[in-house]
Computed example of a mutant assay.
Amino acid sequence: MDSENAAKLAVLIDADNAQSSVVEDLLAEVAKYGTAHVKRAYGDWTGTSLKGWKEQLLTQSIQPIQQFAYTTGKNATDAAMVIDAMDLLYTGRFDGFCLVSSDSDFTRLAARIRESGLTVYGFGERKTPKPFVSACDKFIYIENLSYSKSPATPADTSLRPAPTASVAKLKADTALVSQLRNAVEAASDDDGWAPLANVGHIITKQRPDFDSRNYGYAKLSDLMTATTLFELDRRSPGDGKQAVIYARDKRRQGG
């Protein structure tokens, strides 16, 4: 991605509702979609519950936003994060927001930001309620960020990535097969070939939380190859430009 033309993103983290151990991988994922011009984490930093976050704040240059828990059972952090998000939205300086939380309280915030024409990337655990997932343009499960460099500690066992699904299991997943085939068909030319990037965009519009890593594959091309239902063709446009991958349903062979 051209750094000069990269999307300007604001990353807002609900530290009360996210684990500090995923921050490095999370910011690496954010970098795929643009440049984080604002990085803020919200919580009550006077207590001990966020102790693990403090080193990450310094290392990753994340600004801590102090929010005292005024009343037991009420989440003041959510309100502070929503207010800041709206203030940042009104500046008109950003192309998108990354909301890091597994809390459905941010559903309306995500919808409101999208109403203003900005892109919303959600990050949360698999337990995240569907309304929040659906309110985002794209939703990335935290567990998928752990393909990792270091073995998971006991505290992180719940965040281990999905195991690699077998060919038989992929083929038996009728919803997945239908989704892939429909997207390829929608993006295809007269010969049935579809740019893989377009296929991915179509699927994400229908299912914000779609991710090849949900099935144990790092890339969409790997997942589609694993199903054995599609042909993949890597084409080089020349002039030093990056090769483009195309996909075609094998049922179209000879068509």
Rank of each mutant, 00 (worst) to 15 (best):
residue 2 D to L: 02
residue 3 S to I: 09
residue 3 S to D: 02
residue 5 N to A: 11
residue 5 N to D: 00
residue 6 A to Y: 00
residue 9 L to F: 01
residue 9 L to Q: 01
residue 13 I to D: 12
residue 14 D to T: 13
residue 15 A to V: 14
residue 16 D to L: 13
residue 18 A to H: 12
residue 18 A to W: 03
residue 18 A to S: 15
residue 19 Q to K: 13
residue 25 D to N: 14
residue 29 E to T: 05
residue 30 V to R: 01
residue 33 Y to A: 15
residue 36 A to H: 06
residue 40 R to C: 13
residue 41 A to N: 07
residue 42 Y to S: 13
residue 45 W to H: 05
residue 54 K to Y: 07
residue 55 E to F: 07
residue 59 T to S: 10
residue 60 Q to F: 15
residue 60 Q to R: 10
residue 68 F to I: 08
residue 69 A to I: 02
residue 73 G to L: 06
residue 78 D to A: 08
residue 81 M to I: 09
residue 84 D to Q: 06
residue 85 A to C: 04
residue 85 A to H: 02
residue 87 D to C: 03
residue 89 L to V: 03
residue 90 Y to R: 03
residue 90 Y to F: 14
residue 93 R to D: 14
residue 93 R to L: 08
residue 96 G to K: 00
residue 97 F to E: 04
residue 100 V to G: 07
residue 103 D to K: 03
residue 103 D to E: 09
residue 105 D to R: 00
residue 106 F to G: 04
residue 108 R to H: 11
residue 108 R to S: 12
residue 111 A to W: 01
residue 114 R to Y: 01
residue 115 E to K: 06
residue 117 G to L: 01
residue 122 G to N: 04
residue 124 G to P: 09
residue 125 E to N: 08
residue 128 T to S: 11
residue 129 P to T: 10
residue 130 K to R: 09
residue 131 P to A: 08
residue 136 C to E: 04
residue 141 Y to T: 09
residue 146 S to D: 05
residue 148 S to V: 04
residue 150 S to H: 10
residue 150 S to K: 14
residue 151 P to E: 14
residue 151 P to G: 06
residue 166 S to I: 00
residue 168 A to S: 08
residue 171 K to M: 09
residue 172 A to M: 00
residue 172 A to Q: 13
residue 173 D to F: 04
residue 175 A to K: 14
residue 176 L to D: 06
residue 178 S to A: 14
residue 181 R to S: 15
residue 181 R to P: 03
residue 185 E to C: 10
residue 186 A to K: 15
residue 186 A to F: 11
residue 186 A to W: 03
residue 188 S to T: 13
residue 188 S to Y: 08
residue 189 D to L: 08
residue 189 D to R: 10
residue 190 D to T: 14
residue 193 W to V: 12
residue 194 A to H: 03
residue 197 A to V: 09
residue 197 A to N: 01
residue 201 H to F: 10
residue 203 I to S: 06
residue 206 Q to D: 12
residue 207 R to M: 11
residue 209 D to V: 04
residue 211 D to V: 11
residue 214 N to H: 05
residue 219 K to Y: 04
residue 220 L to K: 00
residue 222 D to A: 10
residue 223 L to G: 01
residue 224 M to H: 09
residue 227 T to R: 04
residue 228 T to Q: 11
residue 235 R to C: 06
residue 237 P to W: 05
residue 238 G to E: 06
residue 244 V to A: 07
residue 251 R to H: 08
residue 252 R to F: 12
residue 254 G to Q: 05
residue 254 G to F: 02
residue 255 G to I: 07
